[in-house]
Design a protein around this nucleic acid. Structure first.
Length: 360
DNA sequence: AATAACGTCAACCGCCGTGGC
DNA sequence: AGCCACGGCGGTTGACGTTAT
């Protein structure tokens, strides 16, 4: 037996709110408050609306200090930084943008920001491909290796060189500031990579997954993403087989248990859910190296740094200078803004653990 | 001018966590 | 411990406006 409906659907008006309804609701709440019971509210006011609908209307439209209209560049940056870090946690993102509602931000992301991001990425990708084809032809003629400067031929397999700093907020202390490499690692994981100590799953202790992670919404399948990345890298690069490191592709199992290995990094599989081709774009992107990902993001953020191909053939190091523009635009806002988020959201520490923690 | 295609956004739906009983 | 009501959240839908053909 299902749950009883919160209201009598047959006698409830749906669709756009009329000015009269708005006025009634606004006047009542401003005078009396919600009374802590949205379900009972419409009857008190004499509105033929569902309580949930009233709540939504108030929160998204009628409540004071709601900001309507275009998003600023700064707001764009915050949204993107947070999305990259925590995914589609719109309410948390909204908490960082006074006057904006989660619904607004969600719509804005889905209809504009995502495309803006993709548009820039596509342009760069096309340019890169064009130059790649040129070089490839050049190399074929000369019988050389198919490698572009600044491109690594290995599948994306991030080395465990980055410092491991758990980004937990389980204490009362402020969360540690993410340093460059931590942020990069975090990002790379979300892009589907894994780290070099992933191969020792049995050797470590297990850590309970937070309840919210341990649901069907968050199948832990990092290695599967990695395998896909590998396939993508095989399909999208013309690298000779000899230059590709072997990769363990036998561990593509969705972890549904109640524990996860502390050497594994928990990444929600739906981190980029709803992005359709965007996920593929990101995966495709990872056939090149960290530096290129950094440049891609910098491109989005509007900085004009170009790839210094000569310095990026190594697969492990990421110059902090390359991260600089992103760091300065995005993460400070994220970090300094995280505090109100913690205050407002009791489960904020859970998010911190879910998305930012990995153990040594 | 007509209409198809696309974009935007308010609103809805259903699931989940929480707290009271 | 189990049930229930409720609030909150994220994903999706559909109406409406705009642009392209």
């Amino acid at each position: 037996m299902g749950r009883a409906p919160c209201c009598d659907k047959a006698n409830v008006k749906k669709g756009p709110w009329s000015p009269e309804e708005d006025a009634k609701l606004k006047a009542y709440i401003e005078e009396n408050g919600t009374g802590g019971n949205w379900i009972a509210l419409p009857q008190k006011i004499g509105l033929k609306r569902c309580g949930k609908s009233c709540r939504l209307r108030w929160l998204n439209y009628l409540r004071p200090n709601i900001k309507h209209g275009a998003f600023s560049e700064g707001e764009d940056n915050i949204i993107c930084s947070l999305y990259i870090n925590i995914g589609s946690r719109w309410s948390i993102i909204a908490a960082q943008l006074p006057g904006r509602t989660d619904n607004d931000i969600k719509n804005y992301w889905n209809t504009r920001l995502k495309k803006k991001l993709l548009g820039k990425q596509r342009k760069e990708q096309q340019a890169r491909r064009a130059s790649w084809l040129t070089v490839k032809q050049e190399m074929k003629r000369e019988g050389g290796d198919y490698m572009l400067p600044g491109m690594v031929s290995q599948p994306p397999y991030w080395p465990q060189q980055l410092p491991v700093i758990p980004f937990t907020t389980t204490t009362n202390q402020d969360p540690p500031l993410p340093n460059d490499q931590e942020s990069i690692k975090n990002l790379l994981i979300k892009l589907g990579g894994r780290f070099s100590d992933d191969h020792h799953p049995q050797s470590s202790t297990s850590t309970p997954i937070p309840n919210s992670m341990n649901s069907s919404r968050y199948p832990l399948d990092v290695s599967f993403a990695q395998d896909q990345l590998y396939e993508n890298s095989m399909n999208n690069t013309v690298s000779p087989a000899s230059s590709i490191s072997p990769i363990n592709s036998t561990c593509s199992q969705v972890t549904n248990g109640t524990h996860f290995n502390t050497n594994e990094v928990a990444v929600p599989n739906d981190m980029f859910q709803g992005l359709d081709g965007f996920t593929d774009e990101l995966r495709e992107l990872t056939y090149s190296n960290n530096q290129q990902i950094m440049n891609w993001l910098e491109g989005f953020y509007g900085t004009d740094n170009t790839v210094d191909g000569s310095s990026t053939t190594g697969s492990s190091s990421v110059e902090s200078s390359s991260w600089g523009p992103i760091y300065s635009l995005g993460f400070p806002q994220l970090v300094t803004g995280f505090e109100p988020c913690q205050q407002n959201m009791p489960q904020a520490s859970t998010y911190g653990e879910q998305y930012c923690t990995w153990a040594v």
